[in-house]
Design a protein around this nucleic acid. Structure first.
Lengths: 199, 199
DNA sequence: GCCTATATTGAACAATTGGTCAATATCGTC
DNA sequence: GACGATATTGACCAATTGTTCAATATAGGC
């Protein structure tokens, strides 16, 4: 009764897409081997054949999620601004646009984030992503402070980078719970006001 | 074989404390009727007797969590600062201190937050809390902008309030995933630098 | 001290779960 | 076209889950 055969890579991708669909629809809590198999139109035994244990499927899904999410990247459009504060603002705008463009990725990512509080292996993966995020902002903050040296005693690039990450993520969680009450443009205007005053 | 009797209020509180302990230890996903009963040293049937359905226990736990969490309150220590920006900074410091003082409450709250993305009843509860939070900051931002009218074109109190909430929550989620890499003092110094420039 | 109301319990149920395994159809190789 | 390797499957298992229910011990009123 076995159906058509397929290569390992194709099957894994097919299963992971099913897993994303299931987890995205009902949360990680609803992610079961059988639900994933049904979504991918496969037998649940085949899912276990390719991923061995559920835990590994979950971990593979996190990797897949990070890989398929458009990672933070300082695009040419952003990089060509001559002033550091303009680049910062453009980067913030770009990231906020991305979060609202991929709401399912964003929500699922935060679910993994919460899961990471209790699972070491997930925590290190998320933590690494967060670190990359901070590093990207720190680079811009470095320039921002170098342009106006000595003006902000005690304000470090690391501190500013952490603030920038807060903007993105705090903004994401607020928009996640009630998109209606959260005005992106108003928010960005306020941030621009602050950044503008900085330099 | 029934054990000692107890009043409804006492039992519910006992069960909810057990539920918090279980959910806080292993996440909402590990919250089962039997685990809660074991934690509270009761039979699992008694838990259902008092809460009828698991769904209601979960919802009651969220209410309990919000009620027992020291809610945002502009204390006298904060209120007596004459300048709005000093009050804002003191309030931010107070809230960040609270988040790290009650890490288990904070983590569980964010788990409910994620759950709210898919459960209407939970979402409205969380959303209401978030709204109260924003309103408290908006009051301060109002004063802040009134002190310096016309200086920030397009910057609204609502926008600034949303930014303040981002600071708190973005800070919380960063500290949640890797407390080691997150320096609270450095963060606050950066925020102070921005707020100081604002007015 | 009895009696009633009910808080409390263990047993039992069906459903769902992750995981194993032998049977089998499919595919590339000869 | 036969063959061997293996991807694929349904059946099966034990554990856990939420929920129901009859039995029972307890506490308060008489």
């Amino acid at each position: 009764m076995p159906g058509k055969r397929e290569s390992e890579d194709v099957r894994r991708e097919q299963i992971l897409r099913g897993a994303f669909e299931v987890a995205s629809r009902g949360g990680i809590g609803s992610l079961t081997i059988r639900a994933v198999a049904a979504e991918a139109r496969l037998s649940h035994a085949l899912v276990l054949f390719h991923f061995e244990r559920k835990e590994r499927l979950v971990h593979a899904l996190l990797d897949w999620l990070i890989a398929t999410t458009s990672v933070l990247h300082v695009s040419d459009d952003v990089a060509r601004f001559p002033h550091a504060q303009d680049r910062l603002h453009a980067l913030l705008q770009q990231e906020m646009a991305r979060l609202s463009r991929e709401p399912r990725h964003t929500r699922l990512f935060f679910e993994f984030w919460a899961l990471g509080a209790r699972h070491e292996s997930i925590r290190v993966r998320i933590s690494a992503e967060l670190e990359r995020y901070r590093a990207a902002f720190k680079a811009i903050m470095d320039e921002l402070l170098r342009a106006e040296p000595g003006a902000f005693a005690g304000v470090t690039p690391d501190g500013l980078a952490a603030v920038a990450v807060s903007w993105i993520h705090g903004c994401a969680v607020q928009a996640m719970i009630d998109p209606g009450h959260f005005d992106t443009d108003e928010y960005l205007a306020a941030v621009r006001g602050m950044v503008g005053q900085l330099a």
